[in-house]
Design a protein around this nucleic acid. Structure first.
Lengths: 76, 76
DNA sequence: ACATAATGTTAGATATATTTAACATTAAGT
DNA sequence: ACTTAATGTTAAATATATCTAACATTATGT
């Protein structure tokens, strides 16, 4: 199972977007509220498409919504 | 099935990285060469984690490796 | 106290990503 | 002509994301 190598700011961004609800966000990008809840809590790695759509809703670049943990192996 | 809302530049980036092979890239990020081939050809939407790892290998921001098609619904 | 809306959570089903293994094709080197 | 390395492609298996449905919790409003 292993912890994800990134975190996300969805909760904060929903708050800043006038307390947008998980259900609303889900409707906008075409997934259920349970899926939003799971992504928000870092329970799994969403599809790139879902991640892009979430970022676009908030008008932010993907890498400002999902933040890679430096420390997580691989590149550099 | 439906077409993906983004393209990618992996093929070019492999070329620029000294003809890095699909198999090499796969090893570096921990997936098989068949998976790299499928992602490269846009056969499906990879996990956000896989997408991040690929971008990191090339030292590029994710949104420079995977390019959202304007035209693809949703935000703004 | 009661209702309602938002969120947390979970089990079971379905869809999709990824693996493994095998075979075909193309280009490069000998 | 023969190898070898890289890529394309496919079928079947496995892992993981996502859906549906249900129930619990917390806060807000009446």
């Amino acid at each position: 199972m292993a912890k994800l190598p990134f975190t996300n700011d969805i909760r904060t961004l929903r708050f800043l977007a006038g307390e947008m609800t998980q259900a609303e966000l889900g409707e906008k990008i075409g997934v259920t509220r349970q899926t939003i809840a799971a992504i928000e809590q870092g329970k799994y790695s969403p599809s790139l498409e879902a991640a892009f759509r979430i970022a676009h809703i908030f008008g932010k670049p993907l890498e400002e919504v999902f933040l890679w943990d430096t420390e997580s192996g691989d590149a550099d």
